[in-house]
Design a protein around this nucleic acid. Structure first.
Length: 306
DNA sequence: AAAGGGATCAACCGCGGTCAA
DNA sequence: CTTGACCGCGGTTGATCCCTT
């Protein structure tokens, strides 16, 4: 598609933080038109602003719009964001439509600066909402055994041949580990642990969003044991198989999330980071991660080509 | 009190989608 | 069908704030 450069590339168009005068000019212009912006491209000239139309739109939608709610996010809002993100992924604009007065940019920032870190501290992958192996929780690398575990899980999930996939994953991760200066001690220990799991993993299936299970949220000293517990938990429920994303009415999730009451008391557990806000999702068996079977299948196929 | 480093968030950038000519 | 214009989105950047040493 042919595409002319944005007006932002014009020489002399102001960038950077907005001044009070500019804000005032933009607000007055839009108010004068009864809130109807019309063409953003033509707006700066009409409003007497030396700004790109895009910049004006951003300033208006993210900051100056009268219905914007500013200030800290409530627990309920956090809860909602996590729930929606679990199903929608980084669809910030879509998520924002379910949080009155919040902008996509604000939610995105809040996710990246607060929620994401909390999830990582809990050992939860903020992308997939699945638990991370403990070693990945604390270290960036040393992931060979973890990769084995997840490869096994993936292969088991899709009924795939685990051999080539895991060899490729292992090779890749070992190369990473060697490339880094990490000690190999933990790596070897985890490989042993992974091997134990793999040897008994014919029905080993990662529970989607299984960090929501109380078993995980309590003290998890051993990753392999943890999955045995989880497998039992999984057997007691009926895991959903459909992808939540666009199909699941988000309002239902909102209602579910909003109806929940506070976290159980007890010894410290990662749940305390959220004051129990994750628990509502336990009531959503249909939720699953973004990466469905096809994701893992593609990963597997890529591995075969290595 | 000053320096350094991490956290935060407003703003920018570039791409994809859509629509009209 | 192609091209160009525009909008909106998600990822990223960088200025500023805040906390620690």
């Amino acid at each position: 598609m042919g595409r002319s450069p944005c007006c932002c590339h014009d020489a002399g168009v102001k960038k950077g933080p907005w001044t009070e005068e500019e804000d005032k000019a933009l607000v007055e212009h839009i108010q004068k038109r009864g809130g109807n912006v019309g063409s953003w491209r033509g707006l700066p000239k009409a409003a007497g602003l030396n700004r790109c139309g895009k910049s004006c739109r951003l300033r208006w939608t993210n900051y100056l719009r009268p219905d914007i709610k500013r200030g800290n996010f409530s627990d309920e809002e956090e809860r909602l964001i996590i729930t929606l993100h679990a199903g929608l992924g980084n669809k910030w604009a879509t998520i924002a439509t379910h949080l009155k007065g919040r902008t996509d940019n604000e939610i995105k920032n809040y996710w990246n600066t607060h929620i994401r870190k909390k999830l990582l501290r809990m050992g939860v992958d903020p992308v997939t909402h699945q638990q991370l192996p403990p070693d990945q929780t604390n270290h960036d690398v040393n992931g060979a055994a973890a990769a084995l575990l997840w490869a096994a899980a993936a292969a088991s999930l899709g009924g795939l041949d685990t051999g080539a996939l895991m060899q490729a994953q292992l090779l890749q991760q070992l190369l990473q580990a060697i490339g880094s200066n990490n000690s190999t001690t933990g790596l070897i220990a985890n490989l042993a642990s992974a091997n134990t799991v793999l040897n008994s993993s014919s029905s080993f299936v990662p529970n989607q969003m299984n960090y929501l299970q109380t078993g995980y949220l309590s003290n998890n000293s051993n990753f392999a044991e943890q999955h045995v517990v989880q497998q039992q938990l999984t057997n007691d429920t009926s895991p959903g198989t459909s992808s939540f994303a666009a199909a699941e009415p988000a309002d239902q999730l909102c209602n579910t999330a909003a109806s929940y009451d506070v976290a159980p008391a007890g010894d410290w557990s990662p749940t305390q980071e959220f004051g129990g806000l994750l628990e509502p999702m336990m009531e959503l068996p249909g939720l699953c991660s973004l990466e469905g079977d096809s994701f893992w299948k593609d990963t597997s196929e890529d591995s075969y080509r290595l």
